[in-house]
Design a protein around this nucleic acid. Structure first.
Length: 591
RNA sequence: GCGCCCAUAGCUCAACUGGAUAGAGCGUCGGUCUACGGAACCGAAGGUUGCAAGUUCGAGCCUUGCUGGGCGCACCA
């Protein structure tokens, strides 16, 4: 069901009734209308005539001409014409564009319409492992998940963000053993996670050579599983200190979670989940393990089954994910769940989703809150890897993953250097603030401006570049607008400005036409969870603003141009700020 | 072996999900040049969309087969 802005829905409705009149009985329900990619053709276009003509064996151009003739759009369009193989092109009246701009400026949502069917959406993202530092491998999930949550909230879905941290697993045997026998308290105080990594590395290396160490680690793991107080205490401490470190990074990134229910939270329910799946005939024993087979699935039947309990009785990733799904479906009543994890987990989630279908379909299941409840829509939001200049997954020179904290430090340091060179007049405090926003914004934007399912090459020079599709370019456009307002002594953003009575200059109209597509673009992002569509939009908006800025003086213009241009500037700034905000990127007033 | 993803200008990426003459940035060449912030703007050159068929009014996008690359496939997460 397509959502449309006022313009698009008006045109679509008009086309629909014209089509009914000209060609009764046609099968098309909602004529599609899209913005023209090329201004030569007009502002909006529709291909309905070609679709209906093809279905009814008619001549497309003739049908288009009679549909266009039956349209009553004189007040909205200056011109409607048939072109090419049968397109109907619409040219909006400048006066209507001005009216739409005024409307958008007065709208607290700036033209972002509410979702047609608001849902409760759980966004599962970031998910670092405790006792390990967050690194580049976490940035895409974190940025994407946070951005998608922001987009969903912007169209008034109810959003629950959940950080499914990896705080359980076999590695804790070694960690606890290491913690008890060789902890460096000073190091723990300085950088607890780094110390945990050291402990794990040492014990792990030693146990590959030393049977005794291996045995001690195994005993610690058993003690933890058995809930022995001493072991649990150490485990808790490791988790708490790790989460506190993560929280520092999230604060720095402006990322927020409603919940942080890690793997351990679901631990107590795993035996019960496995038992239920066996009872319902969904899981079965195979070679001593408990597995779910997908024999009826044309794709999954050839892959290995999904194991939910090992031969030794231990549970797995899949088990936890099923328990987690149950909690979200039954307790949270989620309508939809987004799993923002990398593409390598595709098969895993296919299996989880297929198992969930079976589970939800089984009478007496505990997955859903009630018999008439439906399984949430489950979507795996896949993304590619971050590559270094050598086109291999990015690493430090020593081969370790780059720590997120180091990455952000470097981003800010590089941004600061550029700002110092470009604008030495700025106060030290303003420079630091700008460096933070630009540095972190640049890293986020570089990630979010590209199609998520592709790998991308991480390149400092490109992401901090001042030209091209980058955060600095967009923020610069914003800063220039704010500077106009400072010069003119009209400081606050979003103040009440008189509606534009005229938009006559080409650059004004081009900018205005882009502005009124903002809400549509936000919805398009959510259709396929692709924030790069909005990034592309913001970049185009900025280039149109730059062109406008070159050719249309604002403060020096005479009325009524001055007022109209001020409003265009103000609305552009607000759309840039709001749009960047959806991507999790801040703006600054000076740079 | 089976499955998934990818291949677009020299490089890094787009292309509103089947629409019109495939667009940007970088790099190259050339313009604007006392500017409401030049961290900008304008222009030129650059393409058989990996190859080959097919589907239809119309294909970078859908189908099939190749080639080349990445990833995943039973006791890790």
């Amino acid at each position: 069901m397509p959502r449309m802005t006022d313009v698009r829905s008006l045109l679509s409705q008009a086309l629909s009734s014209a089509l009914d009149a000209v060609c009764p009985g046609h099968a098309l329900t909602v004529p599609s209308v899209s913005a023209c990619h090329d201004a030569r053709y007009g502002d909006y276009q529709s291909n309905v005539a070609m679709l209906v003509a093809a279905a009814g064996n008619l001549a497309p151009r003739e049908l288009a001409a009679s549909v266009a003739g039956a349209l009553r759009l004189e007040d909205l369009c200056a011109k409607v014409e048939v072109a090419g193989p049968g397109f109907i092109n619409f040219h909006l009246r400048p006066s209507r564009i001005a009216a739409l701009i005024a409307e958008m400026a007065a709208d607290p949502h700036n033209g972002i319409a509410s979702a047609a069917n608001p849902r409760r959406i759980v966004v599962d993202f970031s998910s670092p492992n405790t006792a390990k530092a967050m690194h580049v491998g976490h940035i895409r999930s974190t940025f994407l998940g946070d951005a998608l949550a922001r987009f969903a909230r912007a169209v008034r879905h109810e959003v629950i963000t959940d950080n499914h941290v990896g705080d359980w697993g076999a590695q804790f045997g070694m960690l606890i053993h290491g913690y008890n026998t060789r902890l460096d308290r000073e190091a723990e105080k300085r950088d607890p996670v780094a110390e945990f990594e050291r402990l794990y590395r040492e014990v792990s290396q030693e146990s590959s050579r030393n049977e005794e160490t291996r045995e001690k680690a195994r005993r610690e793991l058993a003690a933890l599983h058995a809930g022995e107080a001493e072991s649990v205490e150490v485990w808790k401490k490791i988790a708490e200190l790790s989460l506190a470190e993560f929280e520092k990074l999230y604060r720095r990134l402006g990322v927020r979670f409603d919940h942080c229910l890690g793997e351990s939270f679901y631990n107590p329910s795993l035996p019960e989940v496995v038992a239920e799946l066996r009872r319902l005939g969904i899981a079965e024993e195979s070679e001593g393990a408990i597995c779910v087979f997908f024999r009826e699935d044309p794709v999954l039947k050839d892959a290995a089954p999904m194991m939910i309990r090992k031969k030794d009785g231990a549970f797995l990733y899949a088990t936890t994910d099923l328990a987690t799904l149950r909690h979200r479906a039954r307790e949270w009543r989620a309508d939809e769940i987004l799993y923002v994890t990398d593409a390598r987990q595709k098969l895993h989630f296919q299996q989880i989703f297929a198992a969930a279908e079976k589970w939800a379909g089984a009478p007496g299941n505990s997955l859903l809150a009630s018999a008439d409840a439906r399984l949430p829509r489950l979507r795996h939001i896949v993304f590619g890897s971050v590559l270094g200049a050598d086109k291999k997954p990015i690493k430090t020179r020593s081969g370790d993953p780059i720590k997120l904290a180091d990455l952000l430090d470097e981003a800010e340091a590089r941004a600061l250097k550029i700002i110092e060179k470009k604008n030495p007049a700025l106060s030290a405090e303003a420079r630091r603030a700008a460096a933070r926003v630009l540095g972190i914004g640049a890293v986020k934007y570089a990630d979010l401006c590209q199609n998520r399912n592709l790998d991308y090459v991480f390149d400092w020079n490109k992401l901090l570049a001042l030209q091209g599709n980058t955060a600095p370019y967009l923020i610069y456009a914003y800063v220039r607008i704010r500077s106009i307002f400072r010069q003119g002594g009209i400081a606050p953003l979003g103040q009440t400005l008189p509606p534009p009575s005229v938009l006559s200059h080409d650059a004004e109209l081009a900018l205005a036409k882009k502005l009124i597509q903002f809400g549509d673009t936000v919805h398009a992002v959510l259709d396929d969870c692709r924030p790069h569509l909005l990034a592309g939009y913001l970049y185009e908006l900025s280039t149109r603003f730059s062109r406008f800025y070159e050719t249309c003086p604002v403060l020096k213009a005479a009325e009524p141009d001055r007022g109209a241009r001020l409003l265009l500037c103000d609305l552009t700034a607000r759309v840039l700020q709001r749009g960047l905000g959806l991507l999790g990127i801040e703006t600054i007033e000076e740079m």
